[in-house]
Amino acid sequence: MAGSLLGSEMCIRDSKVYSPTPFAYTQGQKAKVFIEQVVRDTGITLYGFQSQDDKGLFLKLLSVSGIGPKSAMAIMAAEDSNSLAEAIEQGEVKYLTRFPGVGKKTASQIVLDLKGKLGDYVARLDRPDNGENVPPALNDALLALIALGYTQKEVDRITPKLEKVAANTADQYIKKGLALLLKK
Rank of each mutant, 00 (worst) to 15 (best):
Q109F: 00
D129M: 06
K184P: 04
Q52M: 08
E89R: 11
Y121K: 11
G103I: 03
R98F: 02
K175T: 05
Q27W: 01
V122S: 04
D54F: 02
K70N: 09
G68K: 07
Q152S: 07
F58T: 10
L61G: 11
V134L: 13
N168A: 00
L180G: 09
D126K: 14
Q50F: 00
K70Y: 03
G66I: 08
A166Q: 14
A31T: 12
A87W: 10
R40P: 02
K183A: 15
V102P: 02
E89K: 11
V39K: 06
L118D: 07
V134Y: 07
E79L: 02
V122A: 05
Q29C: 04
E163H: 06
A87Q: 13
S4T: 14
L138H: 02
A137L: 06
V64I: 10
L114N: 06
I67W: 10
K115S: 14
N168D: 04
D53R: 11
S8K: 15
V17P: 08
V102N: 10
L162D: 06
L148R: 10
F34G: 02
F99R: 07
G131A: 02
T151D: 12
F58S: 06
P69C: 00
K153Y: 12
M1D: 13
I146C: 08
N82E: 13
A144K: 13
A31C: 12
T169L: 02
G101F: 05
Q90Y: 08
E89I: 00
Q27A: 08
P22W: 10
Y25C: 00
M73A: 03
G43I: 07
A77I: 06
T45M: 04
L142M: 09
L181M: 11
Q37I: 02
V122L: 04
I174Q: 06
R40G: 01
S63P: 03
K176M: 08
M10C: 09
S83N: 14
F99C: 02
L96Y: 09
K105H: 04
N82W: 11
K153M: 11
L62K: 12
Y47P: 04
L181D: 14
Y173F: 15
E36V: 01
A31K: 13
D54Y: 09
Q152K: 14
L138F: 07
S108C: 01
A85Q: 10
K105D: 03
G119F: 08
G66H: 03
P128G: 05
G3D: 14
G91A: 04
V38G: 03
Y47M: 06
G43K: 05
G43V: 06
A147N: 15
A144V: 01
K94H: 07
K55G: 01
F49D: 04
L143R: 13
Q109V: 07
L142D: 12
Q152M: 05
G28W: 05
L61K: 11
